[in-house]
Amino acid sequence: MTCNPNWAEVKDNLLHGQTASDRPDIVLRIFNANKDELINIKVKQQFIGEVQAYSYVFEHQKCGLHHVHLLLTLKQNSKLTTSNIVDECISAEILNPDTDPELHNIVIENMIHGPCGDWCKDGKGKCSKYFLKKFHDETRMDENGYPTYRRTDTGHDAASVVVTDANNSENVIHHDAIKNCIDTRYVSPFEACERIYCRSLQNKRHAVIRLPVHLPNQQIVTIGDAESEGAIRNALENETMVSLTQHEQLGQTQQHTLNGKQKDIVHTILNVALSNEEGLLKSCFYIDGPGGSGKT
């Protein structure tokens, strides 16, 4: 979702003569409110199905307004598994102005890429964003479930025209804002406000913690390009993480060192954690005790 300076909430709160760029504080507050509403629609209202987890991150751009990348992981019974289900949720076409005038205007004003130029072309002259997209009469999904959206050929909707003086090539101004800029850290007014307000630039649910365990002989080994044979052997033998078997043995050893009260606490918490009862899963435990009494 990209911030839109033409949002009615933004314009209504600007003073006479002000633009959205003059009030990054207002724009940010409205953008965050819309972001929260987007998550509410997708996650709590289950607009496209039940959400297992989500993660989002903000991006602030020098040449444009900020936006948020939102990744949703749907539960198995809500995944978009067929082309028909994808078409019900996602459209990659310019909609009919007669049947969907509001959405048609939004797409035309905010979601058209181009015309392509030096700003988006790679060294081979191709668009780095892979435009123009090929037309497809129907949505197709590959073996990994990645869709190629339906884009029917309805003819050209726009044309890019450049008018120059054929007899005078000197009136063409060659200006590249990217090549002429200074290689430095640029903080936009919007990102500066975000930092001042101490807002997090990312969030996720649920938090995922990588445990320092691995299956037998599946540990991560890092070897440099110029490493000697001895260094490679040492890297293979270096155990930066313990295996699941070692982890279980460590847990069993620690279990025997617990006293009666500590074992009762561990068993109580494990019974709740392994329970399928909804009421028990919402339980909260608070363990109180002086330092050195073995709470950890």
Rank of each mutant, 00 (worst) to 15 (best):
M1G: 00
N6Q: 13
W7S: 03
V10Q: 05
D12G: 13
S21T: 14
D22P: 01
R23D: 03
R23G: 03
V27E: 01
V27A: 00
I30A: 02
N32H: 10
A33M: 11
E37V: 08
V43R: 01
Q45G: 06
Q46I: 00
I48T: 01
E59D: 13
H60I: 05
H60R: 06
H60S: 12
Q61S: 09
K62P: 02
H69Y: 03
L70E: 00
L71W: 01
L74K: 02
L80A: 00
T82R: 00
E88I: 05
I90F: 05
S91L: 05
A92I: 02
A92V: 07
A92Y: 03
I94P: 01
L95M: 11
L95W: 04
L95F: 00
P97W: 02
L103N: 13
H104L: 06
I112H: 09
P115K: 03
W119C: 15
K121F: 11
D122P: 02
G125C: 06
K129I: 03
Y130W: 08
F131K: 12
K134E: 15
M141P: 00
N144Y: 07
G145I: 00
Y146Q: 08
Y149A: 04
Y149E: 03
G155R: 02
D157W: 12
V162E: 10
V163A: 12
D165A: 11
N168F: 07
S169E: 15
S169W: 07
E170M: 10
H174Y: 07
D176R: 07
K179E: 11
D183M: 10
R185L: 14
Y186Q: 13
P189S: 01
E191A: 07
C193L: 10
E194K: 02
C198G: 13
S200K: 14
R210M: 12
V213T: 11
H214K: 08
L215G: 12
I220W: 06
V221E: 07
R233T: 14
A235R: 00
L236K: 10
T240R: 11
V242Y: 02
G251Q: 14
Q254V: 06
L258V: 06
N259R: 06
D264L: 14
V266I: 10
H267R: 14
Y286I: 11
D288N: 15
G289C: 09
G292L: 05
